[in-house]
């Protein structure tokens, strides 16, 4: 696949006027967002802006009370979470959430449940070339890995699902700058080589915007700005709000 900057955008995920509530409290106030095939799309925003809620809403947990989520033109707003995964969306949830008492190998197997175990060996090899560190640690308990390795495992587990769309929620959370750079390098690589579409939610705005083809800024449950990654990086409002001191 020759993807990257697609000339004629082919929408993979379309989010239209999505409103999500936690009880009576509104978290997303009508979000519109597009992810085209082959793109890396980044969503940046402050704490509590609703980034992770949007990520979880795509997965149907919590559900959007209003609006529509279309995946490949199909309405998935009311689809069961596990069925959404079967459509080819994989998620690396916030806070990594690997299975701590299972080995790295078993964690990866869990990821293979959706496409089926016949792909497991091929995928395992692919993962081992992407993350040589995980290869060394296959038989180790996931809970004993370092934070960076756990994040790699979380992404690797999502990749084992053979997704068309990879959702990453704050992969840089709590990691040392050098590890962050490595992980972002992997995301870029997967997108370039395999043409995988990536939707990335980040607080680490500088790295995330540099990586993104297109990006959105979310404030208080609303998208306030959008553009290419470069445009937003150069935007003075973005710079003052999200990039001050953020260059590491």
């Amino acid at each position: 696949m020759s993807a990257a900057t697609a000339t004629a955008p082919n929408p993979l995920l379309q989010i239209r006027g999505v409103k999500t509530y936690y009880g009576k409290i509104i978290a997303l106030k009508g979000v519109d967002l597009d992810v085209n095939e082959g793109e890396i799309v980044t969503l940046i925003g402050a704490n509590g802006a609703g980034k992770s809620t949007l990520m979880m809403t795509i997965f149907g947990n919590p559900r959007a009370r209003e609006g529509q989520i279309l995946y490949q033109g199909q309405d998935i707003t009311r689809t069961e979470t596990h069925d959404i995964a079967k459509l080819g969306i994989a998620q690396s949830p916030e806070g990594r959430r690997v299975f701590p008492r299972m080995t790295v190998f078993e964690n990866l197997q869990m990821g293979s449940a959706v496409p089926g175990m016949q792909y497991f060996n091929d995928d395992l090899e692919r993962i081992c070339t992407i993350f040589p560190r995980l290869k060394e640690r296959l038989q180790q308990r996931a809970g004993t890995l370092s934070g960076g390795e756990q994040q790699m495992l979380a992404i690797a587990r999502a990749l084992m699902c053979r997704p068309k769309l990879l959702l990453l929620d704050e992969p840089s959370l709590g990691l040392a700058p050098i590890i962050v750079r490595q992980i972002f390098e992997v995301i870029k690589d997967v997108n370039k080589r395999e043409g995988m579409t990536v939707f990335l939610v980040e607080q680490n705005a500088f790295h995330a915007l540099k990586l993104a083809h297109r990006a959105y800024v979310m404030v208080n449950g609303l998208i306030t700005m959008s553009g290419t990654g470069k445009e937003l990086l150069a935007d003075p409002r973005v710079q003052s709000a999200y990039l001050e001191g953020g260059r590491h």
Partner: peptide, 24 residues
């Protein structure tokens, strides 16, 4: 079997189970 592994995964992290497409 997969169901046994799924139980063990469920004990560890329900959200992660959903993320890998498991019918919890």
């Amino acid at each position: 079997l997969p169901v046994g592994r799924a139980w063990e995964a469920l004990r560890e992290d329900e959200i992660a189970c959903r993320a890998v497409g498991m019918n919890t």
